[in-house]
């Protein structure tokens, strides 16, 4: 009796195990299949990619799609460089400007501290499209429309508040005694920031920068609106704009371009994967 019961329990446990593994396998297929499809298609010929009955893998793998990107009529390399430059610039500028603010929000005492913190948080939630028209007019008047600088300004609208909050969480983690020791040693606030705090949160600066970079990389609406010359366009916007043209039926070329658009983001993502949760919920853990 006892044995039978134990057996049965062992049996259910084994069944549960099997169900669990099957579920995980399904989840992996669900997560990876589209990415596989993108890669596989990027190595197919234009004809094969457009077949009515899709082939599960490239029958005759080719690099033509990638070659076509760089040798074709579109300045694909320029798109790539534009995106890297603007996103990198946004990340660097945002982190530099945000660092003192994050430090002050974490440590300094001033009456508008809570208000400033909340404002940053609300700014972060603002729908970009609401800012779009006035920002467009602003850039127009500042003669920054259709420039990379203008695009970086646009990216700053979400990159900067985010960087402030995320960096604040890193500053919060620096033991206050270390800073007080520096005060006792006679250093002033700005010196402490640069000589003690910044070296200690260096990984945080890198992580934050990467996050901002990724968000800028993902952004479509600003380049679509603020950049009017195709040669100055970023990758996401260029994909949207050119799809009606060159790539209309060339899914192989499209997926090759998509793969190359994904690559930098993928690298950045896995570099900061560990702090992903912290990044996306920053401001969610430590109140203002």
């Amino acid at each position: 009796m006892m044995d039978a019961a134990a057996d049965r329990r062992g049996g259910t446990r084994r069944t549960a195990r099997v169900v669990q593994y099957v579920a995980i396998a399904l989840a992996l297929v669900w997560s990876l299949a589209p990415v596989y499809w993108m890669l596989a298609t990027s190595f197919k010929t234009e004809l094969e990619a457009a077949r009515l009955a899709p082939t599960p893998w490239p029958l005759r793998p080719t690099l033509d799609n990638y070659r076509g990107l760089f040798g074709g009529s579109l300045p694909f390399l320029a798109f790539f460089v534009n995106t890297v430059v603007t996103c990198l610039a946004t990340a660097i500028v945002a982190v530099i400007i945000a660092t003192p603010a994050a430090y002050a929000l974490s440590r300094a005492r001033f009456r508008l501290r809570a208000a400033t913190g909340y404002a940053m948080l609300v700014f972060r939630m603002l729908p970009l499209v609401v800012l779009l028209a006035p920002l467009y007019l602003l850039l127009l008047n500042a003669r920054l429309l259709d420039t990379h600088t203008g695009l970086v300004v646009g990216f700053a609208t979400f990159g900067l508040p985010f960087a402030v909050w995320m960096l604040k969480s890193f500053v919060d983690a620096v033991p206050i005694e270390v800073e007080e020791a520096a005060r006792v040693d006679g250093y002033r606030r700005w010196q402490i920031l640069f000589r003690v705090v910044v070296p200690l949160i260096l990984p945080g600066l890198l992580t934050t920068g990467t996050f901002v970079f990724m968000e800028a990389w993902n952004n479509l609406i600003y380049p679509l609106t603020f950049v009017t010359t195709l040669e100055k366009q970023t990758l996401p916007a260029a994909l949207v704009l050119t799809f009606t043209g060159q790539f209309k039926t060339d899914w192989g070329g499209m997926m090759a371009a998509a793969t190359l658009t994904t690559l930098p983001l993928m690298i950045a993502f896995f570099a900061v994967q560990r702090s992903m949760v912290r990044g996306l919920t920053s401001g969610a853990v430590a109140g203002a």
Partner: peptide
């Protein structure tokens, strides 16, 4: 890590894919 992969795909690429 593999289950996180979709996160690392840019939105526009997701859309076209």
């Amino acid at each position: 890590a593999l289950l996180l992969t979709p996160w690392a795909v840019p939105f526009v690429v997701v859309a076209f894919l």
